[in-house]
Design a protein around this nucleic acid. Structure first.
Lengths: 247, 247
DNA sequence: TACGATTATATGTCTAGACATATATGTCAA
DNA sequence: TTGACATATATGTCTAGACATATAATCGTA
């Protein structure tokens, strides 16, 4: 099986702590194919002997690998390399202002429309709420280097976020405001493609019928709806990138 | 601060282990806003006293929360609730056959084109390899309930996956074959929107100019290119859904 | 042979310590 | 006031045990 080395050699390799060394060592073998899916990884007590450490240290390394779905641990049976199932990619969807500034481009924001109203039936359906309440409806545009980057169409539930009534969305993008004023929400994203209708085309300064990437984000907090937003990006210039590890 | 309860009450609540109880208890407070971003969480020794357990148990709970980016741990300073930064969503991109079957729909696969050739310049650029080698080029179509679901355009690097030369892609989708024969790859996804050109429209049985979601997946394994694939989905019917927690 | 009870064992969690390490903070001198 | 240094402290990692628990394997019985 050629597990390498003594603990000392491993630690000499770089300056990581022991459990990280063990984790990386096992991960390397899995990713390199040395231990293929289904392979039984040495028992904890064997790894203890090999790395000359206590069981808790081995356990910490294996627990993290199990959390990452790289291995599967079965009582009495042992620990096995998992067969990758779904390609779970991590998609980082940044706040648009932060994203554009992070790209080193100049950011511009324009508020197109902002109104406060009692939620109508369509609003309630979109926010997934039953009771009638007040909402803020916002349309705005984000630009990078003075080129339209995305247009945004948003509803904010004022019952959940009453402070939003006092916010000034003429200068601050609602997404950024919410990010700083409503901590720790949960969300669901839906990504699709559409062709630009007249209004979208005008907003993004593209041709009617040009492809657009659409991201719908529905955000809630402790079972209460916070906001629903639809973002249109020019499809030929914007791309979402997701990186992952897993098969 | 009203940390609740004795350890016994916590455990009585449900049947989770103690460190999970602690983790959930702290997570609940953060998500509910009781402990807002920047708030300093009680020190480990305080939590030890509150939950009447050893430091390792508290530490395990806090370590997992730190891994999930919910909290930030600073030596000597303490542990703090993080301000959510980027909305990192987990996007599960399943093997298409598995995805369709998982939706309870009938799956059909058609191989449109399959050829083996020496990599030309375009192939090498797409695969990100310098040296000339052999590749397999595949075009195929996935259908759900006999309606076109996606068309696939793929290159496989035969230098990395020589076994693919013997695979039969007339009946098995290349994605499924690779998933079962090339374990534990890494990948990068790029998601965009285009309008259907004539070939795409014909393949998906939609109108020319209709919106399509495009996913490019580039897959490698231990620094070796495995495959590059471009998938076109009808934009009006297919949507990617990503869920997440994090602000 | 088939099935139910028993046993052995690998993982899951937990403890009460220990030392390492980064760093906030206070102290003292220039 | 400022910068260099010392110190205190919270987290980071590790140990050598312990008991709990799920389950694969074995054994016994119908």
């Amino acid at each position: 099986m050629s597990l390498p080395a003594q603990r000392d050699e491993l630690q000499a390799a770089d300056k990581l702590t022991l459990y990280k060394q063990i984790r990386h060592d096992i991960e390397r073998r899995i990713l390199a194919g040395e231990w293929p899916p289904g392979h039984r990884i040495p028992f904890e007590h064997e790894l203890m002997a090999r790395y000359r450490c206590s069981r808790m240290t081995v356990n910490k390394a294996l627990s993290e690998l199990a959390q990452a779905d790289l291995i599967e641990r079965r009582r009495r049976a042992g620990t096995f390399v998992r067969r990758p199932q779904h390609l779970s990619a991590v998609l980082k969807i940044a706040d648009i202002r932060a994203e554009i500034i992070g790209l080193g481009r100049s950011y511009a924001y324009e508020l197109i429309h902002c109104s406060r109203r009692a939620a109508n039936a369509a609003d309630r359906a979109r926010l997934g709420v039953r009771k009638a309440g007040k909402v803020i409806a916002i349309a705005c545009r984000h630009s990078a280097d003075n080129v339209p980057f995305a247009i945004e169409d948003r509803l904010i539930d004022l019952d959940t976020v009453p402070e939003a009534a006092a916010a000034d969305f003429t200068t601050e993008p609602p997404g950024s405001w919410l990010l700083h004023h409503v901590p720790w929400t949960e969300a669901e994203h839906t990504i699709g493609a559409v062709v630009a209708d007249e209004r979208t085309a005008a907003g993004l300064d593209i041709a009617v019928g040009a492809p657009c990437l659409v991201i719908d984000r529905y955000t809630w907090r402790s079972a209460r709806t916070v906001t629903a937003v639809r973002l249109h990006y020019p499809g030929d210039s914007h791309r979402l990138v997701a990186r992952f590890k897993g098969g």
